[in-house]
């Protein structure tokens, strides 16, 4: 578990160059760290903070808002079982119970051998094939007990390596070009500061502490693009 490798650092710089303001690369960079380490390691978070010119606490505080980011190590396969309304009506809780028994861990748990982490998920948008689940965000619909049993067997036997990449790998298609039209255009001198937590610019300006934070964000244009 470490900082980004030289190759991933190159990818990180490519990602940052796509945005008018550096901080916008936050989620893509965190996904990159998770792809490399399987979770968001403290070193990875620190590295992202350095790249974005932020404190590690700001990066961690942002990451913790999002369900897909794991701040602790997880299993090789993260199994997310949807139990929301459409899947529930198709027996999702019975399916989840079966998977819990089959893996021997409750939702949130990881099997002792580190192969599976089980999660109870909110709607995954595959309701036409309810109940559904994802393994490392690859979709499996029309699930039942038997389908889970054979899926788990295939995963354990390594028969689905191509379909289901290791946890953290999200989009395996790399962007083939940088920006072509023009360098990314930021808000510029005429642009207003970005309200950080709702409200208009005036609200922000009334608060000197927030204002300095906002203007430093605005000034921090992406050098590669400028």
């Amino acid at each position: 578990m470490a900082r980004l490798t030289p190759e991933n650092l190159t990818r990180a710089h490519e990602l940052i160059a796509l945005y008018p303001l550096r901080r916008s690369a936050m989620l893509p960079l965190l996904h990159l760290v998770q792809e490399q380490d399987g979770y968001l390691s403290p070193e990875g978070i620190e590295h992202v903070a350095e790249l974005l010119g932020l404190e590690p606490a700001e990066v961690r505080g942002t990451a913790s808002f999002y369900d897909m980011f794991h701040l602790e190590p997880v299993g090789k396969y993260v199994v997310a079982v949807c139990t929301n309304i459409a899947c529930m009506l198709a027996g999702a809780y019975e399916l989840l119970e079966h998977i819990e028994q089959s893996l021997g861990v409750p939702p949130g748990g990881t099997t002792p051998d580190g192969t599976f982490t089980l999660e109870e998920a909110e709607c995954l948008a595959l309701c036409g094939n309810a109940p559904c689940l994802t393994v490392n965000w690859r979709f499996f619909g029309d699930m039942d007990r038997g389908a889970w049993d054979s899926l788990a067997e295939d995963l354990r036997a390594g028969r689905l390596e191509a379909e289901v990449p290791p946890h953290g790998a999200l989009c395996r298609v790399r962007r083939s070009v940088g920006l072509m039209a023009k360098p990314p255009v930021g808000p510029g001198p005429a642009g207003r500061p970005v309200p950080a937590r709702g409200g208009g610019a005036e609200v922000e300006l009334a608060n000197s502490k927030t204002t300095s934070a906002v203007s430093s964000t605005v000034l921090e244009h992406n050098e590669e693009g400028a």
Binding site: L18, Y19, L21, R22, R23, S24, A25, M26, L27, P28, L30, H31, L52, G61, T62, A63, F65, Y66, D67, M68, F69, E122, L170, C171, R175, L179, M180, A181, K182, P184, V194, A196, G198
Partner: peptide, 27 residues
Amino acid sequence: DIVVHPGAGAYICGDETALLESLEGKR
């Protein structure tokens, strides 16, 4: 230019202003 940007799991980001905050690299 078009840039494809990944979310990271938060229903609230479907709200357009939350989505913009998220795209700015925030909660």
